[in-house]
Amino acid sequence: MTPTLWGRWQTRLLLLGTIGLLITIGFGALFGNFVTPLALLGYVLLLGLAWDIVYQALQSLRWDRDWPPLFMVGGGLLEALLLWGLIKADFLWAGLGLAGLPGVAPGLTLAQFALHYGTVFTVIFLIMFGPMKVIFLKWRFRGGQFF
């Protein structure tokens, strides 16, 4: 599937809001804290909407205007890095008079973050390469859009 901007947004919203949410609830149960994983999911979604604009701009520099799997993974890593950077940017939050990134427990470890983020990303990545096309017949032609 070669995404359009609307397609990126709609697919992100749908997949994070369903599969992503389920996995996140699972991690909430595992870590004994639902707020942090849910807040992280919310940040991935919100920041992602902005990232998607950047991806789409980069995509239009390519002759084929495609978005190869390698770029998807690269994008996923960048998004994770930025989010982890935000979690750890204490000076920033202090400046804003906050204890940290709102909703995220200060004790969140990198391993917990990586496990949660990595699982959500991998499952969604795999679903986009197959099952999505089966469930939504027109999805691939519409650049990931449902509407």
Partner: peptide, 15 residues
């Protein structure tokens, strides 16, 4: 080019 048209013609923004 890999295919007879740019990839996005098959389903991306060029379609």
């Amino acid at each position: 080019q890999p295919y007879n048209f740019p990839k996005a013609c098959f389903g991306g923004d060029l379609r």
